[in-house]
Amino acid sequence: MNLIELRSIVVGHHGRPVLPPIDLTLRRGMFLGVIGPNGSGKTTLLRTVLRLQAPISGLMLYPSGKAPRVGYVPQRDAVDLSFPLTALEIATMGRYGRIGRLARPGSADREAALRALGDVGAGALAGSAYHALSGGQRQRVLIARALAGEPDLLLLDEPATGMDLPSERAMLDLLASFARRNIGVVMVTHHLGAVADYASELCLVAGPSRPITLGPRAEVLTSERLSEIYGTRVVVARLGEHASIYMPRETP
């Protein structure tokens, strides 16, 4: 089921495009990785889909007639650690879009937040102060907050930044499980290894003057394409279903 259709959308800042026009359909159950070098326009595209900034031109359509319910996971560093809030209080914020402005969260909202924390393996952290958690635990709490609102579409901005390898893998397994539960997942990352084994589709962006490549992972993730985008030799090695990406060291 299509949730959002972008038609010739141009994204950018102050009227200056950062990407060429893009046609993109976001569906339930998809796991889309948005990849590209630093400063290539990934986050700008995500913020436009989230309606945090207006597109320069083009159309954003909602096939169901209304905007889907989105769960947003910002970059972890963007969340203020000085607020003395518990993991449960933060997860409950994901329900605020449903609660209404003047109302207080009820027991159903707290239960939904606890369920979301449990889903991401952070149920035991509900009463813990957010600022006292490790980076991986904080990331789980932010994902739980997005999940607590029972979203149709989950959008994540660089969720793997600062995570060690096991934490990163555990988080990616979790996101893949959401896609299997028919939630659309869109993950912006500059970390190619994070999407090589998980995203079903990729959107490769590289600034305003290069075309956007969009398609199934195996088609987009090729050594030639990545080498061209990054301006250096990048190798995509395939081992059955798995892909490994590396930059070979040039020996004189």
Partner: peptide, 13 residues
């Protein structure tokens, strides 16, 4: 509290 803590998330909701 929500808008003060994470105004951007609040906007998405």
């Amino acid at each position: 509290v929500f808008v003060s803590f994470d105004g951007e998330m609040a906007r998405t909701l």
